[in-house]
Design a protein around this nucleic acid. Structure first.
Lengths: 210, 210
DNA sequence: CCCTTACTGTATCGTTCACTCCAATTGTAA
DNA sequence: TTACAATTGGAGTGAACGATACAGTAAGGG
């Protein structure tokens, strides 16, 4: 429409270069962590010189943050939110957990890198860590929202414990899979997790009303 | 006595130096991960020159592995196994989970460092990672043993899923606490986790027998 | 035709890396 | 006293680190 030619013939391969840098960085960071992700290694992996990396990103910290952001977007795209809102609450919760599990198998980078950053306790916190924690809090709020809708009558304290437990289970199961590989059936484990959390929720709600 | 004086006056401060080095390394590694743990930083933190570190440890990998090993011993000492074997199975499971939670609050280094190493996927795996995974498998076997005793009749598949879920929950809750700090009541969450796992176990055993 | 924008390539800066060498120092034993 | 092993103190290795400077190239707009 407005300016198709402007972008049709890649003005340079800038956009593609940025993707190649991020692809390389996501791989290196996944292997070696924050400190282990050297500009030289990323440069070698993507075939572009260091100066190109510094043209696209302010510094190393900015690069890592961009990696987190993009891998989050990739993961979000992999989570197909359940369009159908049918079935019992338990069925719906289970289906959703299965979807999240599948998305984590397909796009594990976000959570793996995020957890690696989250476990570090540097004096000067990397931006990527902050980004991860923010995004994570949003996810937690979504879970709380859903719990409120499907299991009404939960008091605030129960809700906090429940969302903490739900997120923790997801993290832990993901870590198990990262360690043990395909031996862990992530979808089945997530469905089990969803079921247990749902039961705990209904019980808490019942106690809350009484 | 054969030679009390030989050991009374410490022949040099070798043993103490080793501890000081490990103390410094555990702190730095907890802040910055494997790659971020530089010999210079450890040297500065413990007040001993780099050459002393290399006298006590073969190389950096050896140092990190020793850190994992010692922090595991520290953690093991913090887990006071329940001497009393009284109460219902659920009470016993819950009490034990509470103990593990307390020990993780008091000695979190082992699991934090271990998870940091476990999430990395280097081409050449650090020795510390191997040590962590071995120790972890032993812990998993202990859980299976206890489950077998308290909830008999679990088939192998159920047992595998159950131990995976139990360990994953512990990991995940620990990560939550590392991220959110004292806002997470680790003991309470572990007790909730124990309860949910126990219920799932009895249900699986009943289904298994039928 | 030149100017601007968007990149790439080379070369290099000062710093830090893991690790080594070797001369002290110190407690112990002969 | 001598001998020796255990340990420490520094000074120093080449390689790799993050980051920068700058010249060069390609394409669209005027």
């Amino acid at each position: 429409m407005a300016k198709p030619q402007t972008t049709r013939k890649k003005r340079a391969n800038g956009v593609e270069s940025r993707q190649r840098i991020l692809d390389a960085a996501v791989q290196i960071a996944g292997e070696r962590g924050y400190e282990g992700t050297s500009i030289a290694a990323v440069s070698a992996a993507c075939g572009l010189p260091a100066s190109s990396i510094y043209w696209h990103f302010k510094d190393k910290d900015d690069l890592i943050a961009a990696v987190i952001e993009r891998s989050f977007d990739t993961w979000l795209a992999a989570v197909e939110l359940p369009g159908e809102e049918t079935g019992t609450p338990l069925e719906r919760v289970t289906a959703m957990a299965g979807n999240v599990a599948k998305s984590l198998v397909d796009a594990p980078d976000f959570l793996r890198l995020g957890l690696m950053l989250a476990l570090e306790r540097r004096p000067a916190e990397p931006r990527g860590r902050t980004v991860f924690l923010q995004v994570r809090d949003i996810a937690r709020a979504k879970i709380a929202e859903m719990a409120q809708a499907l299991v009404p009558g939960l008091d605030e304290e129960s809700m906090h414990a429940l969302t903490t437990y739900a997120v923790a289970g997801a993290d832990g199961l993901f870590v198990q899979r990262e360690i043990n590989g395909d031996a862990v059936d992530l979808v089945a484990m997530f469905e089990l997790h969803a079921q247990l959390v749902y039961e705990a929720a209904t019980r808490m709600a019942a106690r809350s009303k009484a």
